[in-house]
């Protein structure tokens, strides 16, 4: 008596690809369920407005122009804050990573300040810079600065020392080593830091606007919350979600534009 078995690929489960439409289908299903529960299930519109109600409210706000004014105010703040914070973060991160003196001086300071929730500094910053735009931009750039400097620093530290050796063997100057070897070598990690910072920036934007602003998405959401106009409040939340998505996608796009050498 003898038996025979065909050898099966035990790794097949790893290769299984879900169909592409499944993500869209899941979201549609959730939205439909939500709409259905609101209409039939008797959930009060005050607590959870239906998706269609939110879209309608959003459209109304768009027509009245208030959506655009608020979004524009927020975009300006987050844009300025993000650019300032990330530029300074990248520059200082490169210096800290490359120069051992700068590292010895700067590293303890950065790590002492990093764990402080930046929002806790808002009252102090308002005291210093006033309640205007400057204090909001500053708090956002502070929040962006830390993840960017820390990632840039570790990106520099993780560069293959062989590449620096190669550059030295060709008698490359110090500044060119930074611009031609260290900066491109650290870029992938720098971008990871920028994406991390995008989340922080959004958080600080909304918080700062809720505390001290007349315009902006944060202020708008707080305003409609006070008025218990939940559909308009939710429209603001949806805008925030879209803003975060756009932010992340643009960084992703920029990364692929700059880092052309990866697969």
């Amino acid at each position: 008596m003898s038996f025979q078995r065909q050898v099966q690929n035990q790794m097949a489960f790893m290769d299984h690809q879900p169909p592409t439409w499944i993500s869209a289908a899941a979201i549609t299903a959730i939205l439909l369920l939500w709409e259905f529960s609101c209409r039939v299930g008797g959930i009060s519109a005050l607590f959870l407005p239906s998706p269609t109600a939110i879209v309608a409210a959003g459209y109304e706000m768009l027509q009245s122009g208030e959506l655009l004014t608020n979004v524009a105010a927020s975009l300006l703040r987050i844009g300025l804050g993000f650019i300032t914070g990330s530029t300074v973060g990248i520059l200082l991160g490169l210096i800290l990573g490359f120069s051992s003196i700068a590292d010895a001086v700067g590293n303890p300071i950065v790590h002492a300040l990093y764990p402080v929730p930046k929002l806790a500094l808002l009252p102090l910053i308002i005291l210093w810079l006033g309640i205007g735009e400057l204090s909001k931009v500053t708090i956002i750039s502070l929040g962006v600065f830390f993840p960017v400097i820390i990632n840039t620093y570790s990106g520099v530290k993780n560069i293959d020392p062989l590449l620096i050796k190669v550059a030295v063997s060709f008698k490359t100057s110090r500044t060119n080593i930074i611009s031609k070897v260290i900066l491109p070598g650290a870029l992938p990690v720098i971008f990871a830091g920028l994406k991390l910072a995008a989340g922080t920036a959004l958080l600080l934007l909304v918080a700062a606007e809720m505390i001290a602003a007349k315009e902006g998405i944060g202020a708008m959401i707080l305003h409609y919350g006070d008025l218990m106009l939940t559909d308009k409040l939710m429209a603001g939340v949806v805008i925030l979600s879209l803003l975060g998505l756009v932010f992340n996608r643009s960084l992703h796009w920029l990364e692929r534009l700059v880092i052309t050498w990866k697969q």
């Binding site: 293959d160 590449l163 190669v166 550059a167 060709f170 100057s173 031609k180 870029l187 052309t260 050498w261």
Partner: peptide
């Protein structure tokens, strides 16, 4: 001119740009 065991090509430079590296200085 040094040729290294692990080669040490700059991953962000093309073949052409890698060979050009030393000449740039």
């Amino acid at each position: 001119g040094i040729v290294f065991q692990e080669i040490g090509l700059f991953p962000w430079r093309t073949v052409y740009e890698n060979i050009k590296f030393g000449l740039e200085e």
